[in-house]
Design a protein around this nucleic acid. Structure first.
Lengths: 206, 206
DNA sequence: TGGTCATATGACCAGGTGGTCATATTGTAT
DNA sequence: ATACAATATGACCACCTGGTCATATGACCA
């Protein structure tokens, strides 16, 4: 958590610092991101930075919290109605929410991607420790319920499929940020639809 | 390319240096890997390193070449008989070859994974420039042929599915290195089979 | 005016990085 | 034994890193 000094800052300056930090972490890994560059771009003294944050890690963890909360506002509506829909509808909604989030905050998505790409680094462990519900676990639960309701073949490997579905989320995002920049939601969601169809005919009851 | 001096080295010493380097790049990203650590662990002087290699990049690119060649010997048999089998058999063979390779040389696989995880870094561009045939392109071609032979629904999005299939390769590998260390080939290949089944019922002609 | 307190500052630190280079050591051919 | 080239060496370089700290600034209050 940032120090009180940071929250006492005028709104404008605080946002400026956060924006610069977001840029830095969206462009570089946690390890490669540089406090020196951040203070330079933000136009503050090195010493000031350490009046606001305990450390580079402190800033990053705070950023992750902000991003996480923001993402939750996108996911919450879906997660609340999760029992009203069948598995594939849920899945589509979750993917769609993720894509809307990434479209709205591409830099946040980039930071998340960079983080996932750098597992096995200390900062990653620290984050999942305090942020237990990894995506894959959510999908495992959904799959389990879907099987009980007879929506999905009971002979699938839940762990594997959940892992696959979770990673496809990232992959779909990557695919679109690489191949089709700035396209409209419609076309993106159309692709999600295609993928869900593929998945349904694969693991759904016929 | 390493300097001639490196290749004049006695076999044993040369291998020792390579092994240490492989360890270093399997444990760290290219950016995080340290020449200082390498020379220390290899028991050679810093100056000697730069008698053998033009730079850190020189060593890494050479390593990638060695790894690439090694992987090709695993893939070559499959790629040669590529026209004799249907799409899904080809796919299974390619996945299987990849998994056998990763089982045999887990450190090579780790280096490859680290590299893929750090796209958008200069070294990555440099590598794909001289190493054109990215996996996804191979799958695109296979899909195209399979559609012409009527093995696959013609209405799929080839780009997307190829990208998905390519990335699943990495994902499957990750899944197994994370969840089931040191299992026997049989079980791993069993999972590949499951996944291919899933894919077939999704995009195959019924 | 003087005192107090939160904040701002940048020189500085120890420790790392990739890379260089003058010098020392070795092997070999004469 | 001598000469010459190939190789080995580690002190050194400039530059970077995250983090510290004594000092300066300025706002508010008495």
């Amino acid at each position: 958590m940032p120090k009180e000094t940071f929250f006492n800052l005028p709104e404008e300056k605080r946002q400026q610092i956060l924006n610069v930090a977001i840029d830095e972490f969206a462009t570089n890994t946690y390890a490669q991101a540089s406090v020196n560059r951040i203070v330079e771009k933000a136009g503050i003294a090195k010493g000031s930075f350490y009046q606001y944050f305990k450390s580079k890690k402190d800033l990053f963890l705070y950023l992750m919290q902000v991003i996480g909360e923001e993402k939750m506002t996108y996911l919450a509506p879906t997660l609340q109605n999760i029992h009203q829909y069948d598995f594939f509808t849920c899945l589509r909604e979750i993917y769609a929410a993720g894509i809307r989030f990434a479209t709205q905050y591409p830099k946040y998505a980039e930071i998340g991607k960079k983080l996932l790409a750098s597992k096995d680094t200390p900062i990653f462990e620290e984050l999942v420790d305090q942020n237990l519900p990894v995506a894959s676990q959510l999908f495992q639960e959904l799959l389990h319920q879907a099987i009980q309701r007879g929506e999905i073949r009971p002979d699938i490997d839940i762990n594997l499929i959940a892992y696959l579905i979770a990673s496809i989320n990232t992959t779909l995002l990557e695919y679109y940020t690489e191949n089709i920049n700035q396209e409209f939601d419609e076309k993106i969601l159309n692709t999600v639809e295609k993928f869900i169809d593929l998945l349904r005919n694969g693991i759904g009851t016929k």
